[in-house]
């Protein structure tokens, strides 16, 4: 099973679109946290809303982290196809793939941390005021 997943991850095509998956997940998670909180705070009582907000943001955070972890995993496997050829500076298919994978992996790390940052306020504040 894991072996199959690993093979699948290696086969996915690395591109500029893949590079922006982790930060896009951060952006969607951020937007959801902001919009959902704003609507819940405006449309229901200040204290009642917080339970909904915490639940919503917890679910969103878990989903977002899983997505980022998955894209990081794909990047990690791709950066190791045919060995690690740092610093990826030749005009070859391998180096281009390894570079994109390495950059995606780094962005996945940053996005992972930034998503956790975004989730923190939901667990510190106890109302909407």
């Amino acid at each position: 099973m894991i072996c199959k997943l690993h093979k699948l991850a290696q086969r996915l095509k690395s591109s500029l679109w893949m590079l922006v998956v982790p930060p896009t997940v951060w952006a969607l998670h951020f937007l959801f946290s902001y919009v959902y909180t704003a609507v819940r705070c405006a449309k229901s009582g200040s204290v009642e809303a917080i339970v909904d907000i915490r639940t919503g943001i917890t679910v969103a955070t878990v989903v977002a982290l899983l997505l980022v972890a998955a894209s990081g995993y794909v990047a990690w496997t791709q950066s190791r196809i045919d060995g690690d050829l740092r610093p990826y500076q030749d005009s070859t298919d391998e180096d281009r793939l390894h570079f994109l994978a390495a950059a995606t992996l780094l962005l996945a790390g940053l996005s992972f941390v930034a998503i956790l940052f975004t989730a923190i306020p939901a667990f510190i504040f106890e109302d909407c005021i």
Partner: peptide, 12 residues
């Protein structure tokens, strides 16, 4: 704005 909303932007 609600403090909790400010928190998201502070975090980012």
């Amino acid at each position: 704005m609600p403090n909790i909303s400010l928190g998201f932007f502070s975090a980012a």
